[in-house]
Simulated assay, not measured.
Amino acid sequence: MKLYKKDTPLTFSRDAIRFFFAANFYFLGKLMGIDFELESEYLVLGSIILFGPFFCGWACPFGAASYFATRVGNKLFPKLQFNIPQPYDKWLRMLRYPLLGFFLYLFTVKGVSYFGDHIEMYKSTAFSWNFIKAKHFAVLLIPLFIPNFFCKYMCFQKAGYNLINKVIKICKIKRNTETCIDCGKCDRVCPMQVNPSSKNEICGDDCLSCFNCLDNVCPSKADALSLELLGLKINPGLFSALVMTAYLAATYLVLFVYQW
């Protein structure tokens, strides 16, 4: 199965941003021991509500590290790459929702702060502490063989974002069923196996907003997929540039100026 399409200016730009966030977390935080995250959960949640899962595909350090691990695995172990077949894949993805329920229990009943220090959150119980230990293994090693393993099967935040975007559909990918020729090219380049060709719209369906399916994949005679913001079509490249600029500016203000 082809996991990634040919690189384009959009994918180069996206991957450069992904590398920045992954390197910031793993190089500064893990290798140099600097306790700092270039991230505010308030802004992440706000971006999910306003712009869909853009954070997941562009600014999440874990998602980015998993993505690069997958690309390395494709180069080093091309014959060992595989996706978990159905129906096992479907049921394994559902495991994130009990995890989401567990962490919601910590936040609402036990009073553990989700918007505070993440390390303290994970240290609050033995299970959550073991989860964060397994998290790095699932992000850096397993994706060498199973693409996007953590995002698909372990990320409880992604489970929560899916639910949010199922209700709040400000930003979504639309498929024109009248022009779609069912070529399946968009399905082959989707890293999360969302299968855009089988849906009328994609919002909260495990999509990462990587925009592979929108990046010159659909045949020009069909032009069936488009990105919509508040019902208006918008160019994915322009959208990405505007949202990333706004996200970085807001993050700077929150972390360094107002220190909320």
Rank of each mutant, 00 (worst) to 15 (best):
A222Y: 08
M94H: 12
V243Q: 08
S113R: 10
K79Y: 04
A64Q: 05
G116L: 12
F127A: 03
L92S: 04
I234T: 11
L43R: 04
R175C: 00
V167I: 15
S128A: 15
F256V: 07
R96W: 06
W58D: 04
F19V: 03
P191A: 06
V243W: 01
D205I: 06
M154V: 02
E228K: 13
F256R: 11
V112W: 08
Y26A: 00
F211L: 09
A65E: 13
N216I: 09
Y258H: 03
C171M: 07
V217G: 08
L95R: 06
P219N: 13
A23Y: 05
I202L: 15
F145P: 00
T8G: 10
N165E: 07
M1Y: 06
P78M: 13
S226K: 14
Y122V: 03
D206V: 02
Y26I: 02
L229M: 11
N130R: 01
P147S: 09
A134H: 02
S197G: 12
A241I: 12
K166I: 08
V257E: 07
L238C: 11
C155W: 01
P87S: 08
P236E: 04
L92C: 10
I168P: 00
G160S: 06
E178N: 13
T125R: 10
L255E: 06
S220M: 07
R96G: 04
L10Q: 09
A249D: 04
F68T: 04
N235A: 04
V217T: 11
G116V: 14
K185R: 14
F68R: 09
L225Q: 01
P85E: 07
Y42L: 14
Y42P: 00
K133P: 02
P78I: 06
L100A: 09
L50N: 07
C186R: 07
N83L: 13
K172R: 13
C207Q: 01
I181F: 04
F82L: 09
C186N: 09
D205N: 15
L80S: 09
G101I: 14
G184C: 05
P196V: 07
F20A: 05
A65F: 10
N235P: 00
T125K: 07
N195A: 13
G160W: 05
L106M: 11
Q259E: 15
G184W: 02
K233H: 10
G52D: 06
N212M: 04
G111P: 05
M154R: 00
P78S: 11
F137P: 01
M1W: 09
F131N: 02
Q86V: 04
Y105E: 03
